[in-house]
């Protein structure tokens, strides 16, 4: 038994050492690999799938879209810090919709952390780590093994001189609008979007939204909160919480420009579903941003406090 225990312990220690070496290697690999953005791109777009599918940065050429599906403000903040290390961005468009605020701790689900931690941990500082560990330490622990695979992929990318992505514009090729309309009418679960039973403001989202706001102030970045176009049925659905959301903005963030495009008139075939624009929709919306410019759009779509 003694031999078994000592051999097992020794083997586990070797494994843990190797494992930590890999994790550390990836950490430093990412730390020392810059996110290089063309000098001409001065506008950074961050947020979840709403902005990911809405703004095509190959049309709206002065921007770079690094949004990713389901990104909470925590991950947007990490990306913002990383990008600003080596790039000169002067404007940030941040996805801002009711579901970003009324989110009942979804960002601490095991599966959610599992899908993100392996990619984003090298972008975290001590406070960010503490934030995650405080809220779901077990999920963080369980999310470490996939780092080995990510390390392998990152190493190959670095060798082949390929960029490491943290998000990009997603050209959505789906149209399930009729399906989701039916489902909403019948109170059924919606695909790609969850309507929560209660509207509870997520203090964690707010904590990191505030960090983004402070960071932008410190770095002198013009921050625009952007609510991308949404379907009328959803906006009128009480559980989506448009009224509460607007009230929340009015009370807490009225000093920041909020461009509310949610009621922008667009035909049905511009939507992939209630909250995501498809190829047609994103082309239209990106051209609008490009042609009108943020100053003009601010005059037209800026929410004024009631």
């Amino acid at each position: 038994m003694k031999k078994f225990i000592s051999n097992s312990t020794c083997f586990i220690l070797i494994f843990i050492t190797l494992f930590l070496l890999v994790i550390s290697y990836n950490f430093f690999l990412i730390k020392t690999t810059n996110v290089d953005i063309a000098v001409s791109k001065k506008i950074l777009i961050l947020g979840d799938s709403n902005s990911e599918c809405a703004i095509n940065d190959s049309i709206y050429k002065s921007s770079i879209n690094l949004s990713a599906s389901a990104d909470s403000y925590f991950y947007s903040y990490l990306k913002l810090k990383k990008v600003m290390n080596t790039n000169e961005i002067d404007t940030l468009l941040l996805s801002f919709s009711p579901h970003n605020i009324f989110n009942n701790g979804g960002q601490f689900n095991d599966s959610y952390i599992y899908s993100r931690f392996k990619v984003y941990y090298p972008l975290m500082d001590e406070n960010d780590f503490r934030f995650l560990i405080k809220n779901n330490p077990f999920a963080v622990f369980k999310s470490t093994p996939p780092i080995i695979k990510v390390t392998l992929e990152n190493s190959v990318k670095v060798i082949l001189n390929k960029p490491i992505h943290y998000g990009k514009f997603n050209l959505l090729n789906r149209n399930i609008l009729i399906e989701v309309q039916e489902k909403l009418k019948n109170g059924k679960k919606l695909p790609f979007f969850e309507i929560l039973e209660k509207l509870i403001i997520s203090k964690h989202e707010i904590e990191y939204l505030n960090k983004i706001v402070s960071f932008c102030k410190k770095e002198k970045i013009k921050l625009f909160l952007v609510n991308t176009p949404k379907r009328k049925e959803l906006l009128e659905y009480p559980k989506y919480g448009v009224m509460e959301f607007n009230k929340f903005y009015d009370l807490n963030y009225s000093d920041i420009v909020y461009l509310d495009f949610s009621q922008l008139k667009m035909s049905n075939d511009f939507y992939g579903d209630f909250v995501h624009l498809n190829m047609k929709g994103s082309t239209y919306f990106s051209n609008l941003l490009k042609n009108e410019g943020l100053a003009k759009l601010t005059r037209k779509y800026k929410r004024t406090v009631e």
Binding site: P145, I148, L152
Partner: peptide, 16 residues
């Protein structure tokens, strides 16, 4: 022998 085991463990983690 241990290298062999470690390779299998890393394969499980990488290709799981």
């Amino acid at each position: 022998r241990w290298t062999f085991y470690l390779i299998i463990i890393f394969l499980i983690i990488i290709f799981g």
